[in-house]
Amino acid sequence: MTTLTHAAGDSATMVARQLRHMLRYPSMTLLLAGVPVLLLLLFVYVFGGAMSPGAAGAAAGRAGYLDYIAPGIILIAVASAAQGTAISVAMDMTEGIVARFRTMDIARVSVLTGHVVGSLVQAMLSAGLVTAVALLIGFRPTAGPAEWLAAAGLLVMVSFALTWLSVALGLFAETVESASNLPMPLLFLPFLGSGFVPTETLPAGLRWFAEYQPFTPMMDTLRGLLTGAGGGGSGAAAVAWCAGIALVSYLWAKRLYNRDPAA
């Protein structure tokens, strides 16, 4: 058996372990997916009529606002799943299971690979649930098959980048409690971008931050793909942010994992 085959087999085992955890403890998955759904319903039905009052009144306003905020809520769902990854990694590190894995003849890379791939599956399930709810309450994307495929690819890239960041945060955290708090800014950044209101409506200082933070081009690109609103050339920026976050986070996570005292 070659080294690559050995690593692939061990990684598949660790991915299966993470998926079994999802099935045995569905409350975490439901919580991570449920919060974005509640945010979607809250903003559409409580604020939608006031935020985008259409010519036909509050109902038309809610419909237009739903089309605007749905992409942002979908990305919040992806970020929520990443928060669960930090908790899962911290639990493995603090409960000693990783130290036990290191005494076994398994590829070292497989442990983190299992967390990353498992989180990707969870993130896509959460994003799919939010999208389904948005469609049920009136979200009407105009995307064709190519745009839907591109949107799915973008979500996978965002999830991959945020997952590696959360893995690094989980390794960095000294306790499970701190690991649950460190990724929280990922949930708030969409609120400080173009997720809920156009950036041009924000005050000057906040507008500058909103236009140059990573979530804004991601949300603009996803919105442009799904609704034909146009991303203003934000696609390249979104891909660049995803690649940069993923690379830096992977190198950070690898360094933290390799220098752990239990190694």
Rank of each mutant, 00 (worst) to 15 (best):
M1H: 13
L4G: 06
H6L: 10
A7Y: 00
T13R: 15
A16D: 12
Q18L: 04
Q18M: 14
Q18P: 06
R20K: 15
L23Y: 11
Y25H: 15
P26C: 04
M28E: 14
A33D: 03
L38W: 09
L39V: 14
V46N: 06
S52Q: 13
G57V: 08
G57A: 10
A59K: 10
A60L: 07
A60K: 08
A63Q: 12
L66P: 04
I74L: 15
I76R: 00
I76M: 14
V78S: 13
A81H: 01
G84M: 08
G84E: 00
I87E: 01
I87D: 01
A90F: 06
D92G: 12
T103D: 10
A107M: 05
L112E: 09
L112T: 13
V117Q: 05
G118M: 07
L120S: 09
V121F: 12
M124C: 06
A127V: 08
A132T: 12
L135V: 11
L136C: 10
I137V: 14
R140Y: 07
G144D: 05
E147F: 02
A150H: 07
A151C: 03
G153K: 01
V156E: 09
A161Q: 03
T163R: 07
L165E: 01
L169R: 06
F172I: 06
F172L: 13
T175S: 13
V176Y: 04
S180F: 04
S180P: 11
L182K: 03
L182V: 15
P185C: 05
P190S: 07
P190T: 06
S194E: 12
G195N: 04
V197H: 01
P198V: 03
P198A: 03
T199I: 02
T201N: 13
A204Y: 04
L206Q: 02
R207K: 12
F209W: 04
F209T: 00
A210H: 02
E211C: 08
E211R: 12
Y212Q: 14
P217K: 07
D220C: 05
T221G: 06
G224A: 09
L225I: 03
L225V: 00
A229V: 10
A229D: 11
G232N: 10
G235A: 14
G235M: 02
A237P: 08
A238P: 08
C242A: 14
G244F: 11
I245Q: 04
A246V: 03
V248N: 00
V248M: 11
S249H: 07
K254L: 15
L256D: 01
N258F: 07
D260S: 15
